[in-house]
């Protein structure tokens, strides 16, 4: 008689546990985490200039530029280009990006350009560059800012984060942190 009530009652019980108790517990634990569970922000002179893990747009020549983004670094959304590897329009876009880099970095040769500088990331919010992509831009930035190339190069080297525990995964450079340290040079 009352067996048809079992699914209803059990559902209510687990909504209570999975949708209320569970996220609240994690919410409280998150308050103890870096960034207080709201995402870790980066400040310059007390002003929040971005999220440490969320990439942002740099278009000016005086800054290190991140990877191409299919969503133009709009962090209210996210996503990749979803272009297939043989799509002719896409390959044209890649060619255009190569040309743009060559225009803005007169000292750079085509075979020095790493693939990640001319391909869009999966999230459209990739906060990182590979070390090679950062070094690629050193000459331009040194010239625009009028500082010694060696100084900019040293800055990049200092910002490289090696593989996890020195053993797992690729090396990377956080673009936002790199640019902040660049601004700090007098």
């Amino acid at each position: 008689m009352k067996s048809f009530l079992i699914p209803i009652r059990l559902t209510v019980v687990f909504i209570l546990i999975c949708s209320i108790v569970y996220p609240l517990l994690i919410g409280f634990a998150g308050k103890l985490a870096p960034g207080g569970g709201k995402g870790e922000t980066v400040k310059v002179n007390g002003r929040v200039v971005g999220y440490a893990n969320v990439g942002q747009k740099f278009t000016e020549d005086k800054y290190f530029q991140g990877r191409p983004s299919a969503v133009d670094y709009n962090a209210a959304g996210s996503g990749g280009s979803n272009k297939g590897p043989s799509n002719p329009d896409y390959l044209q876009t890649v060619q255009d990006r190569i040309d743009t880099i060559l225009v803005h970095n007169s000292a750079v040769k085509k075979e020095d350009i790493p693939a990640e500088m001319v391909t869009a990331s999966g999230s459209g919010l990739d906060p990182d560059l590979s070390p090679a992509s950062a070094y690629l831009q050193v000459k331009r930035i040194a010239a625009v800012r009028g500082i010694a190339e060696e100084k900019v190069k040293a800055l990049v080297s200092a910002q490289i984060q090696g593989p996890l525990l020195g053993m797992f995964g690729p090396s990377k450079v956080n673009v936002l942190r790199l640019n902040i340290s660049l601004d700090e040079i007098k």
Partner: peptide
Amino acid sequence: AIAQMGVAQATGAMEGKEVRF
């Protein structure tokens, strides 16, 4: 197809991928 354009693909096929992975 990108290799033909003459850029370096030391990190592999990076379209749609993240640098940190």
